[in-house]
Computed example of a mutant assay.
Amino acid sequence: MKKFLFASVGSAVLLSMAAPALAADMAVKAAPPPFVAPIYSWAGFYIGGNGGWGSSHKCWDVTNFPGATVVPAFREGCHDATGGTAGGQIGYRWQASNWVFGLEAQGNWADLTGSNVSVFVPRWTNNSKIEAFGLFTGQVGYAWNNVLWYVKGGAAVTDDKFRGTVTTAPFQGFVFDSASETRGGGVVGTGIEFGFAPNWSVAIEYDHLFMGNHSNSFTSAGVLGAAVIPVGGVFRTDSIRQDVDLITARINYRFNWGGPVVAKY
């Protein structure tokens, strides 16, 4: 009987000692894995499209008419050439922690048109149009996971067309001289971009183009101009100052993204 009691007590002691170890072992095995939060990657090549609205502010000063220098230059007036734009962009970005760096080339068709009656000669109207522009920029940005804010800056080029038209009847609207140029300048801008899928992102961007002051020679095209200067000859010279403001919506597709690349515990 004593042996049975001692055996029973010994078994109870062993079981009581083993129970915490078994419980601890079971608790470790049952613990859920640590939470892993993905970090969005902005690195890689991308290509995309954009569209929006633009406004080009232009001021005209006549410096030569016709064949005689105007001293001092006479201000003909200013106007805003406004309209739509659409185009595409291609670029590459690097990412270091939350900082993002990139290079981008953008090309756009545009239809920014405007006009004003000349103060110099009210019988004519000055017309302008930007038909296209290109931007070549560097970028620096800061990312909050799938949200990226960036600034950009670099070179800009615009394709400009200028016309002088008759203001009054009976030849109202007839072109009497014209000029065109490809103008270079600079651009600064900023945007905010949202990644909504592993390879896709959308952005809203604002850009300001500093296109400077250029001298443009207008050639005679007939009607009023032909009465003073033969067709094809220089009718007048204007110094035209120009700035451009752009607001565009953009969508980009990234290549070799591969989804989230960094884990955060």
Rank of each mutant, 00 (worst) to 15 (best):
G88E: 03
K29V: 09
A263Q: 13
F35T: 10
D80K: 01
S16K: 06
V117C: 00
D243L: 01
A7W: 08
N145H: 07
G44T: 10
G212N: 09
R123N: 13
D177N: 10
D111A: 13
T82C: 02
V166D: 12
G84C: 03
N256Y: 11
S11P: 00
S55C: 05
L112E: 03
P20T: 06
Y150M: 09
A110R: 01
A249K: 04
A81V: 03
V262K: 07
T158D: 15
V100M: 07
Y46Q: 06
G233D: 08
T82R: 13
T113M: 04
N213P: 00
V121L: 11
S201F: 07
V228L: 14
V71S: 13
Q95V: 08
F120E: 01
D159R: 12
Q89T: 05
I204M: 14
G77M: 05
E76D: 15
V28C: 06
G173A: 10
D243I: 02
G195T: 03
S180Q: 09
G54E: 04
Q89N: 13
Y40E: 01
G10Y: 08
L103S: 08
F196A: 04
T125E: 07
V151Y: 04
G107Q: 05
A31T: 10
T165N: 11
N116G: 07
T113L: 04
A7L: 14
T125F: 00
F65R: 00
W149M: 14
A143N: 05
I90V: 15
S178Y: 05
I130H: 03
G233P: 09
I90P: 02
E131T: 14
A19R: 10
Q172I: 12
H57E: 08
N127H: 10
N199I: 02
I229V: 15
M211G: 02
A43R: 12
A43L: 02
Q139S: 11
S201Q: 08
W109M: 08
F174E: 14
S56F: 01
D61C: 01
N216G: 00
T63S: 13
I90T: 08
G184T: 12
G107F: 09
L112R: 03
Y142W: 15
L112G: 02
V71D: 13
S16V: 08
Y142G: 05
V140Q: 11
G232Q: 09
A30E: 12
T167R: 04
N98A: 10
S180V: 04
G184P: 07
S55Q: 12
Q172V: 14
N64R: 12
L209T: 00
V261D: 14
W144L: 10
Y142A: 05
G222H: 02
A143H: 03
V228G: 05
A156N: 09
S128L: 01
H57I: 05
M1F: 11
S115H: 12
N108S: 13
A249P: 01
F194N: 06
F210Y: 13
S201I: 07
A24W: 08
F235Q: 05
S118M: 07
P20K: 11
V70M: 02
I90K: 05
Y150Q: 09
K29E: 10
G54R: 06
N252C: 03
G91D: 07
D111N: 15
N256W: 11
H208I: 05
Y92A: 03
F162R: 02
T82K: 14
Q139G: 03
S201H: 05
V166N: 09
S118V: 00
D111L: 06
F255M: 09
V157M: 14
S115N: 14
V147W: 15
A249C: 06
V9R: 14
A24V: 11
S178P: 00
